[in-house]
């Protein structure tokens, strides 16, 4: 298993990224002060399996500890499953919400660690965003998910065989999928355009962005919709 490396950064760069997190409009609602009581860690499923602590992430931000924050924004935030089990803080903090902000800042600021962390999601994003439908097992890149264990490699290699053992047709592959009607797809495409999701993808993966943009433009043009 590869551990992402936290690259050295200047104090100014760390302060800049930290400043973006604090400046986020949601920050005031997500971070008050930390008792360091650990209720968020106790509730966190990721904390049971990883060296991951929503408390430490919140605490480091409260303490304005830039070095620790830098480690968290590069590495730890990607170990969160964003389930928000941690939203039970007696001080009204939302560690999960803070992590959402930190992830977004990591992506939009173009941190290399964010690109690496999201690499394995390329095909997933492509499938969901272009077809508007679900992830299928044949799109997995097993090497990008080492933490799923050795079986996933074997299953991926012989997926066709496993599939033939299943009686019903699942349509659950990259080439087959439940059909999404055009009206829904247009709405989805517009949402991704207007909320800045596409811009965010551009910051992480220009190639993927180009492909998605082409697919979307074609459908939108068919419906006489122009997005800048």
């Amino acid at each position: 298993m590869t551990v992402p490396v936290v690259r050295e950064a200047t104090p100014e760069r760390k302060a800049e990224i930290f400043g973006k997190v604090v400046a986020d409009v949601r920050f005031q609602d997500y971070v008050h002060g930390c008792y360091e009581c650990g209720i968020c860690v106790a509730a966190c499923p990721s904390a049971r399996f990883y060296d991951f602590s929503p408390r430490k992430i919140t605490q480091a931000v409260c303490r304005e500890d830039l070095d620790l924050f830098w480690e968290h924004v590069n590495v730890d935030v990607w170990n969160c499953s964003q389930c928000f089990s941690c939203d039970r803080c007696p001080r009204g903090n939302s560690p999960g919400g803070l992590i959402t902000i930190m992830r977004e800042v990591a992506v939009t600021a173009g941190l290399r660690s964010a690109k690496e962390a999201l690499e394995g999601g390329e095909r997933v994003v492509y499938k969901i965003m272009s077809t508007g439908t679900q992830v299928s097992p044949d799109m997995l890149q097993p090497e990008a998910f080492p933490d799923w264990g050795p079986d996933v490699q074997d299953v991926s290699r012989n997926l066709d065989l496993w599939r033939r053992a299943l009686p019903p047709e699942t349509l659950h592959t990259t080439t087959t999928a439940w059909e999404i009607d055009d009206k829904t797809l247009v709405e989805l495409y517009l949402i991704w355009h207007m909320t800045g999701v596409l811009d965010m993808i551009k910051a992480v993966d220009e190639g993927l962005h180009m492909i998605l943009n082409d697919v979307m433009e074609e459908l939108l043009e068919d419906h006489d919709i122009v997005v800048s």
Binding site: H32, G33, E36, C62, R63, E64
Partner: peptide, 14 residues
């Protein structure tokens, strides 16, 4: 306590 921590960013280190 909350006032010191939240409004004045006093750092409480256990």
């Amino acid at each position: 306590y909350w006032k010191a921590q939240e409004e004045h960013h006093v750092q409480f280190i256990r």
